[in-house]
Amino acid sequence: MTTRIILIGPPGAGKGTQAARLSEALGVPAISTGDIFRANVKGETELGRTAKRYMDAGEYVPDEVTNSMVADRLSQDDAKDGFLLDGYPRTRAQVADLDAMLEERGASLDHVVELTADVDEVVGRLLARASLQGRSDDTEDVIRHRLDVYAEQTQPLTDVYDQRGLLRQVDGLGDVETVTERIRQAIGA
């Protein structure tokens, strides 16, 4: 059985935590563009230096960089029977690019899970994470800007996926186990 899922939600809604848990439960890789960008930043690769400029300003990394990275990752053997995308797509253009990538493989999405969360709760979560991890991209101003960018550019994707009958909205607040169970019920897993 294949499982192809996208997790959508504002920064700090718990996508990364839930992606890791669902990946293990469903036996598919969790593919996080944020993790890939941060690994490149840490490794000081050319992509990492480019991505860092955008991340530090709270902006998205340009589509052409992100799309080629995602296409390469989806072509790897461990993703042939499914995947869980965390942080991609973020724009309508990326939706079209992902559609093309999947069509090329004769595949389609099974579910799009939107984790919803209160803005002030998300800001608090991200500030706490920044303090613990020393992340330069998580100041309050940058966090609020990222949330504004999310609302403007990414949230409209939920309309696209809702029209396709793929969208499942799940409350992302609460303890980790409870949120995981909500997601599993929403996707019938």
Rank of each mutant, 00 (worst) to 15 (best):
D148A: 15
V113N: 06
L115V: 09
N40P: 10
V65Y: 14
L167Y: 10
E104T: 13
M1S: 14
A151E: 15
T91W: 02
R144N: 02
T2G: 09
H111I: 02
V179G: 04
Q94E: 12
D137T: 00
E181P: 10
A151I: 06
A57G: 01
G165R: 04
A128M: 06
D162N: 13
I183H: 07
I31V: 14
I6D: 03
A96S: 14
L132H: 12
V28T: 00
L157V: 03
L109I: 01
V41A: 06
R38K: 08
T158C: 14
A19M: 00
D56L: 04
V122N: 08
D56G: 01
Y150S: 09
E64Y: 10
A186W: 01
E46C: 06
L126H: 02
I5K: 04
P10K: 11
A79E: 05
E140K: 09
G16I: 00
L47Q: 02
L132S: 15
E24A: 13
D78I: 10
D63G: 08
D72S: 14
G16M: 01
V119H: 11
A79T: 03
E104W: 00
S136H: 10
I5Q: 02
A96F: 02
E181S: 11
G58V: 09
T3W: 12
F83G: 07
A100R: 15
G82M: 11
R90K: 02
R146A: 08
V170Y: 06
R49Y: 06
E181V: 11
L126G: 11
E104S: 14
R90E: 01
T50V: 15
E181Q: 15
L157W: 03
G106V: 07
L26T: 04
S136N: 12
K42I: 09
D81F: 10
T33H: 01
F83T: 04
S23D: 00
A20H: 08
D72Q: 14
D35I: 05
H145F: 13
E24M: 00
L22D: 04
G12F: 05
D159V: 12
A130S: 14
E44N: 15
G9Q: 06
T33G: 07
Q169F: 01
L127P: 10
L102I: 10
D110F: 12
G43F: 02
A25M: 12
A19L: 09
V28F: 08
T154D: 01
R21Y: 03
T180C: 08
I8K: 00
D171Y: 09
T3A: 14
V41F: 11
R144T: 05
M55E: 08
G14H: 00
E140L: 03
Q76C: 08
L7I: 04
T178C: 04
T66Q: 05
T154A: 05
L157I: 07
D97C: 08
M55A: 09
D141R: 09
A189Q: 12
R92H: 12
V112K: 06
N40L: 00
D141N: 12
L98T: 07
D97I: 00
D63V: 11
R168S: 13
D162G: 15
G188W: 08
T17C: 05
E177T: 13
